[in-house]
Structures are given as structure tokens and as C-alpha cells.
Design a protein around this nucleic acid. Sequence first.
DNA 1: CTGAAAGCGCTAACAA
DNA 2: TTGTTAGCGCTTTCAG
Lengths: 366, 366
Amino acid sequence: MTEESTSRDAAAAPPSGKERRAGARPTLADIAQAAGVTRMTVSNALNGRGGVSDDMRERIREIAREKGYVTNWVAKKLSDSRSGSETGIIGVIAEIHTPFMGEVVSAISGAVRDQGRDMLVYSLPDPGKSFPGNVLDLLLHAVDGVIAVIPRDTRDFHMLAAAGVPMVVVDPLKETIDMPSVAADSYGGACCAMRHLIELGHRKIAFLAGEARRLSAQERLRGYRDVLREAGLAYRAEYVVEAGFLPEPARPATEGLLALDDPPTAIFAGNDASALSAISTIEQAGLSVPEDISVVGFDDVSLASQARRGLTTIRQPFADIGAAAVQLLLDLRAGDPEAATRHITLPVELIRRETTAPPRGDGLRR
Amino acid sequence: MTEESTSRDAAAAPPSGKERRAGARPTLADIAQAAGVTRMTVSNALNGRGGVSDDMRERIREIAREKGYVTNWVAKKLSDSRSGSETGIIGVIAEIHTPFMGEVVSAISGAVRDQGRDMLVYSLPDPGKSFPGNVLDLLLHAVDGVIAVIPRDTRDFHMLAAAGVPMVVVDPLKETIDMPSVAADSYGGACCAMRHLIELGHRKIAFLAGEARRLSAQERLRGYRDVLREAGLAYRAEYVVEAGFLPEPARPATEGLLALDDPPTAIFAGNDASALSAISTIEQAGLSVPEDISVVGFDDVSLASQARRGLTTIRQPFADIGAAAVQLLLDLRAGDPEAATRHITLPVELIRRETTAPPRGDGLRR
DNA sequence: CTGAAAGCGCTAACAA
DNA sequence: TTGTTAGCGCTTTCAG
């Protein structure tokens, strides 16, 4: 040892005033000192970087273990920032409340795992509030990119993108159309659902509209209108009610439909949550599905097939959505110039189960 | 300026080879240079630390904004590590798949927010796999503590705790009883549910057992047995079937019960997921709930009340659980010595809805 | 009110 | 194979 050059490495003598706080985690220097080598040797040994004899490596590993050494992620990251390496962690911003979100997040989780990476989920705070600085900053610096599935606030959102964090949006909003995105073919699905109902013989079809800010909701409405027109059916304003993609508002919305002078014989719900709620409402009103009223949903969340009567619905390819989002993010990060403007739309599929049937012969109810 | 002392501050001349990479984010030094002051002044100005004239502060803020400056969380954290400050972020380890988890995580989210902090969720990888180092390390260094709600693997889990991360467990497993925890009173709730059924006149009550590793599942089973004994009823092995707290296994389990020579007149399901699945199975078998068979669940997830027939169940005080977990974590972090061994059990409540009724007069079905 | 120095824990790049 | 130097971006401490 030379002459106490580096302050810490040579600080073998306690009196130097460099006493370690009790609860502090051991650092490279601590275990280096214990092993009688330099920090670099320890670093190399622990990271299997070669240049260390096998004995030494074992010895160091042993000491590290018993001292409970864990790499300081923050320090490592800061140091690595020079070489701009990845963290292997992908950030996900989402609301984990609804079943739909659950499916999407699970799918992303699977896809991320398939890529040998990991995922951290940030669930948004209450509406209107912006991201707290802490988390925003952490996300900004700790993850390789962000996949956002947000039904609401997007303010600080563009800021994240502006700060250079690769970002892709799943189920985009009007406000996020300028970012790369992944979504299911809502328009196509809606058309498919409507045609199914029309083929069954329905002429009076209501629509439980979803959250208007989501493009998917708009597209489903568009599909509803277009197929109506295509079938020569009139668009009736009283048949289109807001249900916000949620079960609670779907209830009064359905009741309203039931109370109409000329109630519909079928309901196309914007998503499964509202479809399930509608069915429950219909049955509580003493009617039955699909005998009195047919119902078709959208999403095919796992609950849809578990209901007493399996829900006829449009299946979103969740796994594909997750995989596409992750891939898109990776491409973006890799600098693929075309990725920045890529908008992926995945095909959906009609799943016929037990909540749709031909309408009752005209005799009943009016 | 003296003689180019600090490498960067004085590096006004490009030829120094210190060119900034194109995509790099601006640093304190960058904006300091643009403003013609030192980094500290910028730091102070941006963090509202005083010691900077108002004009200067405004000017600096302006420059920072247009340059898109964001403080480097990693560097800040590393620097702060000296003074051991908090990050204001709480980590949550959970599976977000099931409705129960969703409720718990939402509750924690709310509680965390109430404390002016924020939350990052890490969803476990596939069973058996251990935490990938990256995320573990990140968690270790980026959050003030961890709240875990894990149904499965716990290996690296104790390691996190050993590394000194304050940690509390919600709905603990056998393996985690040595950590501070928060849970609902499963035993009490089970007793309550069973007594309700018995008061209604049921004598043949089956139990859909939950995931055995979870203490809550064990406690519910214990409650089931104890109340049976207390009521002078025999424990019948064929009435206790595994359903793992999940809907899928609950289906065959229920079918098995229905196929018994002497089928039960009531089913106490370990949780709502299995209860709902049981009901659906019963109805598909052509029987009705509660006329033929009563069913009571456990949890009172939001779905329970939305079903066509509201599910009679035991309500877990999710909000309280979340709040207690966060509080416990904060106490732990604050060094409260007693917190380390605290196990909080919160009271539950029977919610009578429409899936329980007296058994059919003995005439029917044997 | 502002500036200089040192250091948080780690790693890349050489030197021995 | 091991040691040395420098620096990641920020903050604290102590001078000016």
C-alpha cells in the first residue's frame, strides 16, 4: 500500500473518522478491504469480468456473501451512464383497476419476460394530478422505455417523451395519436359484432358507448354507425348511451334502454365490463338474455367466459398486443427511424357464446 | 475563472474533446454554462433552496425549461445517499392478476397517496424464477420500503429484508410469518360465515379451500372446522375440496360436491373468485342459488355485488388494510423497534346479500 | 448571495 | 493478475 492515496481504500484505521454508520450497507470498498485487495478486483470478481484468479474470486464472493453485499444499483447506473447501457427494465404506466387493464398489463408482463427483461408498473394518481416529480424522474432514468396504457391524464406524459424516453402507447387517446401505438382493431371488431347481431335478425340495436377520449371507443361507435347504415337501418340517438366502459354507469344506461317505448332487442356494449353489467341489469328487470335481449361485449376478458352464460364478445389478442408493444418499444430504442411513427392495429375475432340469439318473434313486447 | 480547475465548468471550448453526445440529456453544468453561473447556483435555483436572487432564479428556470432539463434522479440519489434521505417512493411486490390483488393494490395505492408518497409495482415473474437482479437492486436502492402481497415465491424475498429494506407483508404466507404483516381476520370471518349458514338451518356445509400456503386460507379452514365442532356437526372430508382461491379449480371442485351421494346444502367458498365460479357451476347444473344451495364467499371484491344475485360474503376492509400496511412500513422505517414484530389483524364483516337462504324443506333431494 | 472542493459507489481504461 | 486514475451528475460544506 502506498501512502493512503485513495481516502477509503487505505482507511484501515478507524480513528480516521470515516466510521461507517451502523445500518449502512457494505460497499465495494468494505469488502475489498476485508479481502485485502482493491475495489476493482472485487468488482471484477463479482461481475465475472475475468482478470481474477479463481481462488480469489471464490474468496471474494464468500466475503461478499457473509457481509451481505449488494451492488448499489444507483452508483452502478450512474457510472454506466457513460457507456449508455440498458437497465433491462421497462416501465409501464397504467391503471390496474379494471379487468381490461389487468389483461393488458399481464400480457405486457409476459412479453417483457420473453425478452429477458423486467417490468415496473406505475399506476397513475388521481385524475387531474400530475405525475409526482420523484417517480417521473425515476422512470426517466431507471427504465429503458415506457409503455403507457392510460385512460386519463396525459400532461406530463408528452414531457416524458420529450425528455427522450422511448415510449409507446397501448389503446391510445386522442391526445396521444402522435406517439407510436398498439391497439386492437376496434372498428373492425365493432363491425363484426354488429353484423353478427344483424345476421341474427336484430333491427333494434343499442350501443353502450365507452369513454369518449379513447380512440377505441370512438372507433367502436363508428363501426356501430357504419354497419347500421350499411344494413339500411336508421341511427337512433336514444339507442346510444354513455357507459364509460365501466360497470356502474352501464346499469342506469341499460335501465334507460329498457324503459324506452320501443326498446332494443339487442345491445352492443362497448366493452365486457359494461356488457356484463348490462346483462345483470336486464336479468334483474325480469328479462332474460339472450331470449329477450341479446348482448355482445368487447375485449373477451377472462371473466367473459366464466359467466353463467358465456358472453358473446370480440376477442382482443392481448398476448399479441403485449408482444407488439414491447417489440415496438425495443425498435424505438434501437433507433429504428420508422418505429417512431408506427401504429399497429391487431385483428380481433368474434367469439360466439351464449348471450346472443335471434330476436323473439315479433309477438312479444309491443 | 481561475485555471480550468474543474474539468467541465470551464470546458467552454469545444475542442476539448468533451463534446456532448447528441441524444444526451442536458446536465446542471450545461445550463449553468448557458446562464453564466456555477452548477450550484443552478441547483439552488431549481430546487428553491434560497441564496439566489429572484431575477437569477427566473432566468435559470427559463433556460432550464427551454433546454428541457430534468434532474438526473440517479445522480441526485447517489449524492443524497450521504444524508440518507427518502425517495418518497414505496415499492409494492404483487401479482396483479386476480381481483383480490387488484383491490389490495388499489387500496395501498390510495393509502400511499394519502401519505404524499408514490408507488411502484413490481409484478412477480413466473413461479420458481427468482427476482432478476436488476429489479431487485433497483428496488433495494430506489424505494423507501416494500409492501409485499405475494401468493408464491419468497426466496429472494427474505434477502430483500436482510439487505435492510423495510418490508411489510399483506396476507402473509407460512414462510413470511417472521415479517411484520397486515391481514384481515380470516378466522373470525370464516366463523362468521359458518354461523350465518348454520343459523339459516344448514347442516351440510362444504368448504372450497384456498391456497394452502397462505395463512388466510389456513385460518379460514380452521374457522370452518371450529364452527362445525361448536355446532356439533361432524367434519366430513368429502365436503372439503381444494379450489386454490381461483375460479378454474373451483368448477370441478363444485361439480364433485354436486355429484356426492349426499350433497351439501351450502358451500362456504374460501374467496369470492371461487364462490362466483361455484355459483355459475351450480346454475349450469340446473340448480339454483340460493334455493337449492346457498353460497357464501370471502373478500367482497367489487364484482361480488355486481353479480345478478349479489353474493353474500365476508367483507375485507381493503382501504384499512392498505392504510395499515403503509403506516406500518413508515413506522418500521422510522425505526420504531416494536414495529418489526407487529402483526395487524383487521376485523371483517358479513355482508348478507342474495346467495344464502334456509335450506329446502327436507323433502327435496334425498 | 455565489464559488470551489470533495465525495456518494461504481466502472472503464490504462499502467504495472 | 492486480492497482491507479478519472469521472458519471449532483449536493454538502466551507470560503469568498
